[in-house]
């Protein structure tokens, strides 16, 4: 199977080959890191304004816990966006898988089997998206918008529109438990992020994703099975969304038909924020993590400052625009 993906130079490999003189590499790095500076700036700002609360290990654990589930979705959204597509169905799919998991567990199924089946249903949903986009040639925007609607409908049908509760403790541990001081969702998110980083930067499949996203036609002409590559990106997305839905259900100790819906827009925002850090204009997992950091720190910091909730939403939008334009300007100046 892997021979279908000939090794192509990923945008990252040139860096490793030392193609750029050291000085120019450094200045490029600085110029494109406006978003990173934004994140550091936000942390510094909140640290100065509320040093005793913001800069505590407990609060940082809180921030990590608050973005862990979003990180799972954003990690796989990064893959889909590397290929040059979007997946608008990730949030509703996570909600749907959460409801499926909750119903299976309430029905008395063993948690391990329930989680396995729930992950499978996510992968099947991803396969549907992938089939529509890669093989039927529909635009990712339209097809995932359509499946988003259907997934939401299915979640409402399966949950009967209400909250599904009464889940076993062994399962809830997955979302509420801790290993030492570290919350379980953070551990799961870190494992998934490392996995995505590994596949994106160290494997032929990852390079093929970048190749198809960079120039699909060139990739095809050099022997990459572009359809299969795009299909596989949506499979990954289905898996990640399902995982997020399962962990969210455990965290909330209940399944809600729309619980994960807001994850979709936030995940795309995180990836876009991360793209500003990339020299090639393609998403990277490192960039996405910085984007997630901005989303998480901003939300937590404004909460701690007791900023009015409506003002908070306005500020979040403004700060995201500022972060992105800062990095754009610094690139132009170069």
């Amino acid at each position: 199977m892997m021979t279908l993906f000939p090794p192509l130079r990923s945008p990252k490999t040139s860096k490793n080959q030392g193609a750029f003189p050291r000085k120019s590499f450094l200045s490029r790095r600085l110029a494109s890191s406006g978003t990173l500076i934004g994140l550091v700036g936000l942390i510094a700002l909140f640290a100065v304004l509320r040093p005793k609360i913001f800069l505590t290990p407990l609060n940082f654990t809180n921030i990590l816990e608050q973005i862990a589930i979003l990180a799972m979705v954003a990690a796989v959204q990064t893959i889909v966006m590397v290929v040059g597509d979007f997946d608008l169905s990730v949030g509703s799919l996570a909600s749907l898988v959460g409801v499926i998991t909750a119903q299976l567990l309430v029905g008395g199924m063993d948690p391990v089997l329930a989680i396995f089946l729930a992950l499978c249903s996510g992968i099947i949903a991803g396969a549907i998206n992938g089939f529509l986009v890669a093989y039927l040639g529909l635009s990712a925007f339209i097809s995932t918008l359509a499946t988003m609607t259907s997934f939401t409908g299915l979640a409402l049908l399966l949950s009967n529109g209400t909250t599904v509760f009464g889940l076993p403790d062994a399962f809830i541990w997955l979302g509420q438990g801790r290993v030492g001081p570290v919350p379980m969702p953070v551990i799961i998110a870190v494992i998934l992020v490392i996995l995505v980083w590994f596949v994106l930067s160290k494997t032929v499949l990852g390079r093929s994703w970048y190749a198809v996203g960079g120039n699909s036609e060139a990739a095809r002409l050099s022997g990459v099975n572009t359809n299969l590559v795009r299909f596989s990106a949506f499979l990954a997305s289905g898996f990640g969304a399902a995982l997020a839905g399962i962990v969210l259900t455990a965290r909330l100790a209940s399944g809600h038909p729309s619980a994960a819906d807001p994850l979709m827009l936030s995940s795309i925002a995180a990836v876009f924020l991360g793209i500003t850090l990339s020299r090639t204009g393609q998403p990277t997992i490192g960039g996405t993590i910085v984007g997630l950091g901005i989303v998480g720190v901003l939300n937590n910091g404004l909460n701690i400052l007791q900023v009015n909730s409506y003002v908070q939403q306005v500020l979040t939008g403004v700060i995201i625009i500022l972060a992105v334009s800062l990095s754009l300007f610094s690139k132009k100046r170069r």
Binding site: N62, H256, D261, N303, I304
Partner: peptide
């Protein structure tokens, strides 16, 4: 404090807000 809860996703949103209020 009065905290506006976002819909959809009110459970998780409230949980996050209250977690931050507790630490603050």
């Amino acid at each position: 404090e009065e905290k506006h809860v976002n819909v959809p996703g009110p459970v998780d949103d409230a949980r996050t807000s209250v977690q931050d209020i507790i630490s603050a």
